[in-house]
Amino acid sequence: MFNFIQVEFLKLKNSKIFLLTVLCSLFPAFLLYLGYLEDPTLVSTFEEILYVNTQYVIGLLAVLLFSIVVSYLIGREYNEHTLKLIMTAPTSKFKYLLGKYLMFLIWAMILIFVAFLSSIAIGLMMGVSGFTFDIIVNGLWDLMYGGFLLFLTMSPFVFLAMIINNMVPAMIGGAVLVIANLMISSSSYAAYFPWFAPYMIISGDWAVITVPSYVSYIVILVTFIIGILISYLYFVKKDVSL
């Protein structure tokens, strides 16, 4: 599996998509800074910065970014006709899917971490107060944990990328989910929506709408299992595309 992940990183050599997604993950911090320039009283502590950043990242941007990443990771093997190269190496279909999920997780966590670092950098630039070890560690944990939960909800996109190999449907799908998140964020159904549930869990907002947090966990887990099952069964049953 180590070799597989190493190969996945090698595939990104000379590819602009990785850099592009990293740049996109800087966007929430950039938005925060623009807001600060407009209104310097918008945020005054690191805690507030991390809270707003988490909202932007987990609730909005990561949904779109993750859908693009997963679509690229899976879809390019079809578009560049390289799936047969991997399969005849030989690589088992189980190992292939597991490797792809792992690479997706690593890539997702890198993006989340970059988003976190950029928010810290912006906070320092803005000169806000409350830079303590506990706040930083808690902020990092929330963001990484939220990112992980969101990663789990993206498994249906793996299936989608197998059926439709180009990135446009994934981008549209991701954008639709972002809009749905925006619309649903203040409603009582927010905790039931798989792609907003991670934010509900880490922000603690589930308590506000009086839905137990385990409901969100169940929604996320069910989405993950359904995505894993359909993508695996489809991939195993289908002949390898030439």
Partner: peptide, 18 residues
Amino acid sequence: GFYENLSAFDNLRIVSKL
């Protein structure tokens, strides 16, 4: 089918690593 963004050597490196 090989990776368009990679050199001949890197493409073969991928195959041999796999």
